[in-house]
């Protein structure tokens, strides 16, 4: 069995609809990964601290009610904390014309409604492995 990925599944902003984030957490758990799961309304600074301490490979942000509009702020904060190797995905409701707002800020994938369990798990695994590679390529502990 390969090493599990570590994934942070969270919600920022004001919305509290968490059916989607709970389902995604369950999908990833059932695919053998370790999911650090938070309640909604996380501050951006808190997400950065969680990602850092938990050494996650991927951050999944669930957004149903326009909270994606502050994801660019999250991307900037992650970069400032030296976490630019971490891959960020956004799941939920993002209008087509606002997707570039996220991808331009560095979001790797946007999973819209109707994304299947396989789409999500495969996407996270691919991104997670590349995040791990990127982290390794920047040097590790030396004897």
């Amino acid at each position: 069995m390969s090493t599990p990925l570590r994934v942070l599944v969270t919600k920022i902003g004001f919305d509290g609809h968490d059916r989607g984030s709970r389902l995604v957490a369950a999908f990833l758990r059932d695919a053998g990964h370790e999911v650090v799961y938070t309640p909604p309304w996380q501050e951006i600074s808190a997400v950065v601290t969680l990602a850092l301490q938990e050494d996650v490979d991927v951050i999944g942000v669930s957004s149903l009610a326009t909270d994606h509009l502050i994801v660019p702020d999250l991307m900037e904060a992650l970069c400032d904390a030296g976490l630019d190797h971490v891959e960020v995905i956004v799941g939920g409701i993002v209008p087509d014309n606002e997707i570039p707002l996220l991808t331009d800020a560095g979001v790797a994938r946007v999973f819209g409604p109707g994304s299947s369990r396989e789409d999500i798990v495969d996407g996270v695994e691919e991104l997670g492995r590349s995040a791990q590679q990127r982290k390794l390529s920047r040097g590790g502990f030396e004897a």
Partner: peptide, 10 residues
């Protein structure tokens, strides 16, 4: 007291 981009969107 909140992020401006989110005001009044929902």
């Amino acid at each position: 007291e909140v992020p401006f981009p989110l005001l009044g969107t929902c």
